[in-house]
Structure formats: C-alpha cells, structure tokens
Amino acid sequence: MLRIKNLKCSYGSIVAVHGVSLSVKKGELISIIGANGAGKSTLLLAICGLLKNWEGEIVFQDKDLKGMSPPAIVRSGISMVPEGRQIFSPLSVMDNLKMGAYTMYRKGLKSQVEEDFDMVMEMFPILRERAHQLAGTLSGGEQQMLAIGRALMARPRLLVLDEPSMGLAPKIVEMIFNVITTLQSQGVTILLVEQNARAALKISHRGYVLETGKMVLQGSADELLVDDDVKRAYLGRDYGDFYDGRDA
C-alpha cells in the first residue's frame, strides 16, 4: 500500500534521513523504532506532506505523493496522529472530532460523519462523557484517544501514529496499544513510530529500525524482539525480568 524508496529528508543543509526504503502492505501493522533524533518523526512528516524538502519516492496506492499538499494527502486516505497529540485545545471534544471529518464535509457525506461519531464514541466511551468539554482540559490519555478518534473520522486507509505512548503512564499506554491492535484487526493499515520498542513490536507484524537517519535493520516483529542488537539498544529490561531473574 505504501512504498518508500531512498527517502532523503533535510532541514536546510542538515540531512535528517539518508536514503531510507520501507514498505507497508495492506492490513499490516508496521513499527518504526529507533532512538531520539533517529529521524522517525521526520519520516512521518514527509509522508504526510508536512515536510516539503524531501527527495526520493513515496508511493501510496500507486499514487506518487511528491508535491502533494497535506490536505490532498489526507483526502487520498492517510491520516496522522501527530507527536504530542496536538488536539485543538480551545475547541470542544465534539468540535475536534468534527475537525477530523473536515474533508468529509466537503464531499457532502454528512450522514457518514454522524455514523463515525458513534463509532468513535463507542471505541472511546470516555469521549462521549466529555463531548462538550474543552479539549485542553482533558488528561493526557484522553487527549491521545481524542487525537486517534479525530484521525479516524477521516476514514483513513492508512493510519500513521507518531509516538502515541509519549508522556503517558504505562497503564494508559497499554490501553492505547490495545486500541491500536483492535483497529488493525478491523482492517486499518497502521504505521507506528515509537520509542517504546517493546510495546510496539509486540503488536506489530514487522518492524524497521532507524539509526541516525539510516535504516539498519528490518524483519518480522518476532525476529526483531529476539535480535541481540535490538534488545541491547531498544528493548531495555522488561519488569518481568527483574522478578524472574531472566537476563533480557
């Protein structure tokens, strides 16, 4: 569904991503893991059209994304849940969700939008409770759910999430990842960028490892979870290892 070849992204004269190639097939859940500053977010910005300065090839469903504006990319079926959530604080929860369906209104699909509201509220009951509350007053986890709900309102074919676990408590992270897994089982193709490599790989089909802007490893999630390099650099120790005395 998504095919990237030799993507090179620069901020001015600084090259952040050096010739990265990756692919996402329909229905897959792919994770990109790597340390801070590895270029993961830059990669996502390029995909969503928010970064203008990139070379290489990004093809989504046989359409070349080069030069496409972000709204056009959203219309072709890619929705992003940005880093740090970036929900619209002065707007209410409902208004935020309505914003997510912005492109839908344009196509005159108002009834579909109503359906989607229900779908999102069902997935995130807490949002139904807080429907008229200002988004800026929600907790971190609730904001993340709102951000995901907002992206879902555009009925995306590819959902891109930028560090959904950032700044959230472990229990909330678990919940969010459960939601992501549920979405994937409903047929949404998902591209996930995460620093929490263990949680991400556990729910993914395949993974890619990015280091200082270069792709150094890829493979099935199982392969990566047992790979020594990955374990050392990104997986840290699972809390279970402390109790069982296992060596991670």
Partner: peptide
C-alpha cells in the same frame, strides 16, 4: 532493496 540498504548501512 530494503534489505540490501540496511545490510550496507550495518
């Protein structure tokens, strides 16, 4: 291509 590039990087 992906595998080749990551092999070369490594």
């Amino acid at each position: 291509l992906e595998r080749l590039q990551s092999t070369l990087n490594r």
